[in-house]
Design a protein around this nucleic acid. Structure first.
Length: 574
RNA sequence: UGCCCGAUGGUGUAACGGUAGCACAGCAGACUCUGAAUCUGUUUGUCAUGGUUCAAAUCCAUGUCGGGCAACCA
């Protein structure tokens, strides 16, 4: 069984951006479609980034183009090599077997870096100064703010705006050479301080930062701002469609201004914007995720409860499920909140197809088959995956003493309870129909054991195998059971919009993780980290990265990816 | 009080002047050795008011509501 398939979601999605690309292809506007995914390496990627990755790589994939992974690393004080590594891993994982052939710089699956272009960017800045379109400004940060004005109030020209080209050139060189401390001078574009668009009010192009950069080391103390670096990085890489989120809409005129004022010979890239993903019952901003990690409210960036790509992966969500999810939510300019149920559905749909079925009892109670011989073990046939005949079968040991799920027995059952009850019958999955004869309790009245008789002809192929009983429950043989740690994850937050108002941490779900020791069928001893399992009637599980897989001390740890849908639980609630 | 962008069932989306469709969720039923899966049926919608038109979710105007923009962040 392979975890990644080559099947793209079909049919190919359509949205306003793809429509534009289709049009551009028809017009032969570009020799090749070229997109990019440009994260800043200042945090881990999350499912919102997955949406963007699927869009950018999806377009490259569908139109025979290329998509670059580029680290937008223009601010060394916020960035770290740990993040470039995690981002590279996550992107490669998400596109593997799907759009990995569209990746620019494929050989080693390495990213591009905006910092690779610092020399060229510097030259472009000099060109702008020479044309009188940029100047060195000596305003302090505080004065800069005053001069900028406000959205409803025009700004004021900097007193340094009419400095000569020669003087700006000289100062800019000296800024580069480290002659001035941080914050003393900037390079600014000369556009229009009275523009209704703040981003056109002589925006800063370069600032001084005496800081070590994770890629360029100590070479620079002068770093370009996003607006200057981004459009030019796109141009340098030959990007045709630069797709970003809505908040950059107001930056587009600046993006175009910089490119148009540089007399560039090749066709210019264009920026298009779409709405970022908001998902219910979680938070998505890097700041908040960072807070959860730093305050140890979760175990790390890859905590399975987080919406990070690494967290979802650890949780057991597959890349294909994430891609299908991205396909289903679409691309628009409307800022809505996507129901987590859409994600959950994509995950279940995917796991249902690939998960191997296994029997595991999470909260056990002992059950004795009084008419089954004490020292006998029977090997039963069990199907690995009813959705996939190729997955084959396995043997399941059955014996006199079993564990069943505590919840599958009720002494005083509610109406329509199809499971085990005193005097009632139920089928043991893959085995016999049993009848509950006796309920054994301890001194406090707690049920500690159930004594049952089996219809020994009711096994598959037996004389009474066709008998209909309403309920089927799972079980594990006591003598053969394997103890494993199971981590039951639930939503991290108790409300759909934790960041709607007030402190989002006030809405943390105190029960987002429950750890139990489960009793599993012995075949799970051979569980594989890349495999997905369905514990029948419970949910989907996968091995955690912490699981020790040595044969001597096989401490198995399973993460619950998601529960099975549970219609009965809803009935009980009502 | 400026500028930009949005608004289609509960949620996310499609319909590009001509039958408002899809998915998720919900509800009801069938089937079932997983109360899963699968299958069938089904409730619910064009922000408002005008205008243009034989015809408006779609075009125009006004309004309402929501989001974004004033880091030497991205």
């Amino acid at each position: 069984m392979s975890l990644e398939t080559n099947a793209p979601p079909a049919p190919a999605p359509s949205d306003f951006i793809r429509e534009l690309v289709t049009q551009h292809v028809a017009e032969k506007r570009y020799p090749k479609i070229h997109t990019r995914f440009p994260p800043e390496p200042n945090g881990y990627l999350h499912i919102g980034h997955a949406k963007s990755i699927c869009l950018n790589f999806g377009i490259a994939h569908e139109f025979g183009g290329v998509c670059n992974l580029r680290m937008d690393d223009t601010n060394p004080t916020k960035e770290d090599i740990e993040y470039v590594e995690s981002i590279t891993t996550d992107v490669n994982w998400l596109i593997a077997g799907w759009a990995d052939r569209c990746l620019g710089l494929t050989a080693a699956q390495l990213p591009f870096y905006a910092s690779d272009y610092f020399d060229q960017l510097y030259d472009y800045a000099v060109a702008l100064i020479r044309q009188g379109k940029a100047f060195v400004c000596d305003l302090s940060p505080a004065d800069m703010e005053t001069y900028r004005g406000a959205p409803d109030r025009p700004g004021k020209d900097s007193p340094f705006r009419n400095r000569t080209v020669e003087e700006s050139l000289d100062l800019f060189t000296r800024m580069k050479n480290g002659e001035f401390p941080d914050g003393t001078r900037t390079l600014r574009a000369k556009i229009d301080m009275s523009s209704s668009n703040i981003w056109l009010r002589d925006p800063i192009l370069y600032r001084i930062r005496h800081a070590e950069h994770h890629q360029t080391g100590a070479k620079w103390c002068l770093y370009p701002m996003y607006d200057f670096a981004h459009c030019l990085s796109d141009y340098i890489e030959g990007i045709t469609h630069s797709i970003c989120t809505l908040e950059f809409e107001v930056h587009r005129p600046l993006y175009d201004w910089i490119l148009q004022n540089l007399a560039l010979p090749r066709p210019l890239p264009h920026q298009y914007e779409f709405a970022r993903l908001s998902l219910g019952y979680t938070v998505m901003s890097k700041r908040k995720l960072m807070q959860l990690v730093e305050e140890k409210l979760v175990t790390g960036w890859d905590d399975p409860r987080l919406p990070t790509i690494s967290g979802l992966r650890r949780r057991g969500v597959t890349a294909e499920a994430l891609r299908n999810f991205a396909y289903h939510i679409g691309i628009t300019k409307y800022n809505g909140i996507t129901d987590v149920a859409v994600l959950e559905h994509a995950v279940r749909e995917d796991l249902n197809k690939r998960a191997l079925r296994r029997l595991a009892v999470l909260k056990p109670i002992k059950l004795v088959i009084t008419n089954f011989p004490e020292d006998q073990t029977e090997e039963l046939d069990a199907v690995n995956n009813p959705e996939d005949e190729q997955a084959g079968k396995r043997k399941l040991p059955f014996s006199r003493e079993l564990y069943i799920e505590r919840d599958d027995f009720q002494e005083v059952p509610p109406p329509k309870f199809f499971r085990l009850k005193p005097g009632g019958e139920v089928r043991l999955k893959y085995a016999y129909i049993i009848k509950c004869d006796e309920v054994v309790k301890d001194a406090n009245g707690h049920v500690i054991e159930l004594r049952c008789t089996a219809d020994l002809d009711s096994k598959t192929g037996g004389a009474t195998a066709g008998r209909k009983v309403k309920g089927t429950i799972h079980w594990v043989s006591v003598a053969h059971a394997v103890d494993v740690e199971v981590r039951l994850y639930d939503r991290l937050f108790t409300v759909a919009e934790p960041d709607a108002e007030g402190d989002f941490k006030a809405h943390l779900n105190p029960h987002s993780l429950e750890i139990v020791t489960a009793k599993c069928e012995p075949s799970l001893n051979d569980a594989k980290p890349e495999a997905r399992y369905q514990f029948e009637r419970i949910g989907y599980f996968t091995l955690d990265k912490d699981a020790r897989l040595s044969t001597n001390n096989p401490q198995l740890i399973f993460n619950r990816t998601i529960t099975l849908k549970d219609t009965w639980a809803k009935v009980v609630q009502k």
